[in-house]
Design a binder for these strands. Structure first.
Length: 119
DNA sequence: AAGCTGACTATGG
DNA sequence: GCCATAGCCAGCT
């Protein structure tokens, strides 16, 4: 696995992303866009996904499986060593998955902008 | 250097 | 509600 090159500005962005993702409670999920918005939308949802891609470089555990796209679709499952692992983890937390999507997303949705507020 | 890609989203038909 | 477009931005070819 090739290390991800981090420029000065996205190091800061990555840190913020990890900080938010680590605070997602068990059994809850959020979206890339929500995290991006919480961080100011400066670099967009795609960069949140990129941050997740580099999450395994982070010394701490990042529950990347709790971050989905806005439809609750498990778009990132293929980035896991085993694609089924993402779904299994979510199900283990009480989230029902059907056809790679979260069932009743609203019930499990966790918006950092609302739940966390800006610190 | 220019173009493509992607764990995205919002918008318009 | 599905499909196409267009912004988005860092990394890779």
């Amino acid at each position: 696995m090739k290390p991800i090159k981090l420029s000065e500005k996205n190091k800061d962005f990555f840190s913020h992303v990890y900080e938010v993702v680590k605070q997602i409670p068990e059994g809850r999920v959020t979206s890339y866009g929500a995290v991006a918005k919480y961080l100011g939308t400066a670099r967009g949802a795609r960069m949140v996904g990129w941050a997740m891609n580099g999450s395994h470089f982070h010394p701490e555990y990042i529950p990347a499986h709790r971050v989905l796209n806005r439809n609750g679709l498990l778009t990132g499952k293929h980035q896991f060593s085993d694609p089924s692992e993402m779904q299994r983890r979510l199900e283990a937390e009480g989230i029902e998955i059907k056809d790679d999507k979260v069932v009743d997303l609203k019930k499990h949705y966790w918006d950092p902008g609302i739940e966390l507020k800006y610190e």
